[in-house]
Structures are given as C-alpha cells and as structure tokens.
Amino acid sequence: MHSEPRPYWHPIFAGVLLGLALLLTILVTGHGLGASGAVTRLAAAIGAWLAPAATAANAYLGGYVKAGDPLVGWITWEVLGMLVGGLLGALWSGRFRAGTVERGPRIGRGRRLALAFGGGILVGFGARLARGCTSGLGLSGGAALGVGGFVFLIGFLVAGFIAMQFVRKEWT
C-alpha cells in the first residue's frame, strides 16, 4: 500500500511561487521560462542520428545541427532542472508513482498511451507553429503583456473545451 500523499499546494500559493520563479527568470536571463524548445532540440538530435543528411538539409531543423550539438542550449538545461524539480517534489510529497499509466476509470492502458502519443503529436506540431507552448508563450508571454501570449491563450482555452467534449470518456 502506498503511503498517503501530501496534499497539493493551494492554487494561490502555487501560482505566486510560479510567478516569482518566472519573474526571477526574466530578471536573471532577460527571457521567460519555456519547455517545448527542448523538444525541438531533442527532435533535431534524434533526427541527426537517424537521418543525418535529411536533418541537416531540413529548412527548419538544419540550423540546429549546423550549430553543433543540437541538444546544447539554455532550454535543455532548464528542462533538465524541471525534471529534477518534479522528481524531488514528487518524492518528498509521496506523490511519485514509478511506471504508472494515469488514466480515467473507463479506458485501458494501451488506449491511454496511444491517445497520449497522438495528443503529443498535435502539441509538438502546434508549439512549433506558435513559436512556443503554454510555458514559453502563454505563461511567459502573458506576464510580459505580449499580444502573442494572449492570442495563444485564447486558442488554447477554446480548443481545450471543444476537444474535451469528444474525449470526455477518456477521463471520466
């Protein structure tokens, strides 16, 4: 039996802490927090390994390969920090669950993994099109009062509500 997990933080506490981390990031680096940029670098690195010629010749990913190791960049270090932070938080709070497939009560592991993969494709594509994700464009862009961040957030919230009407059974 798993030990009882500690409760999640109150949303105001979590939000203020996240906001202060974002403010500190902007003051220290001159830009916000991100996430999807590390996935772009990972995609370039795996591409360069599987299909070096095609990746180097690609109009979008080629630049990452030509500049040296595509994985080396600020965002990679930041996301590595996130992985460590998430792990420490989950371990400390008793919320770490090794190897679980989290899903609603009416869906099997295989189907959940397939839907996670499919949703990931949409998000990976969408983040490249938008030039950022919920972190880099929505959160960081919104804090900077950038128009782009708010345009992104409107799209994110509208599509999230609409798509949920079709996948309700996955979660409930």
Binding site: G119, A130, G138, G148, G155
Partner: peptide, 21 residues
Amino acid sequence: AMLIGGLLIGAGFAIGGYCPG
C-alpha cells in the same frame, strides 16, 4: 500561427493530458 498553434495545443492537451512543461 499563434492562434492555430494555441488551438492545436489546447486540443492535444485535452486528448493527450499534458502540455510540454
């Protein structure tokens, strides 16, 4: 690009359960 990218990430979040971060 930012509106359509946001729409795709919103849909992918509802289907896949996460965003990149």
